[in-house]
């Protein structure tokens, strides 16, 4: 039995479909009820907040989980990153108002949910920045003059466009990854290995 932490939401549902096609079904998960844990023959699944998936896996409450590369980069959990599922593709970008002119002599004010990613990115460029950590509605920050730029996930860029913002740099492409707990991998090698092989076949069409 493999314990699986799935991210709540549309991405998680797509991922579950992949698991089911791989032969790791858990039919009760499709029932509309308030249960938290769903048991199948080979897997036991539960929905968790997407940003918490890595914590469940790192601490061994889940053997495997599916999480965005953004979360892996931000929290750097000590886990195996086994497979790029190529779902939920988007990119981590720097975005700002269309008429913004960067003055490299000034400290750049950066609003973001992803403080570590932003700090690392600008440290590599030797740029002095001031991080403003926000938990949501990041796009508001440059509009209200709270920050000069934002570092955030951009999928289609529509929200940005509607608010007269635009992405100016891409930091890193993002997609969903299958992660595994390092200890669980030692004791459930066969089961986790089969799951990965089957998922890999769906994603890349080979072994």
């Amino acid at each position: 039995m493999i314990n699986v932490a799935l991210p709540k939401g549309r991405l998680g549902e797509k991922v579950y479909d992949m698991f089911a096609r791989a032969g790791f079904e858990c039919p009760s998960i499709l029932e509309n009820n308030r249960k938290l844990i769903f048991e199948g023959d080979k897997v036991c699944c539960f929905w968790v907040k997407p940003s918490d998936v890595a914590i469940y896996v790192e601490r061994g409450a889940a053997d495997v989980g599916v999480v965005g590369k953004d979360i892996i980069l931000e929290y750097q959990p000590d886990v195996y990153e086994m497979l790029d599922l190529k779902l939920g593709a988007c990119r981590m970008c720097v975005a700002t108002k269309k008429d913004f002119h960067d003055d490299p002599e000034k400290t750049l004010r950066v609003a973001t949910k992803f403080s570590r990613i932003a700090r690392r990115y600008y440290a590599e460029k030797c740029r002095d920045i001031d991080i403003i950590h926000l938990n949501g509605s990041i796009e508001l920050a440059p509009i209200l003059g709270l920050s000069d730029v934002i570092v955030d996930i951009v999928e289609t860029g529509k929200t940005l466009l509607e608010n007269n913002l635009e992405p100016i740099e891409t930091i890193v492409p993002i997609s969903a990854r299958l992660i595994a707990n390092k200890a669980a991998y030692k004791f459930k090698t066969g089961e986790i290995g089969t799951l990965i092989r089957e998922l890999n076949r769906q994603v890349n069409g080979n072994d």
């Binding site: 061994g60 707990n181 390092k182 200890a183 030692k186 004791f187």
Partner: peptide, 9 residues
């Protein structure tokens, strides 16, 4: 070294 039931080495 790992022990079954513990999440890290």
């Amino acid at each position: 070294g790992y022990i079954s039931g513990l999440p890290s080495s």
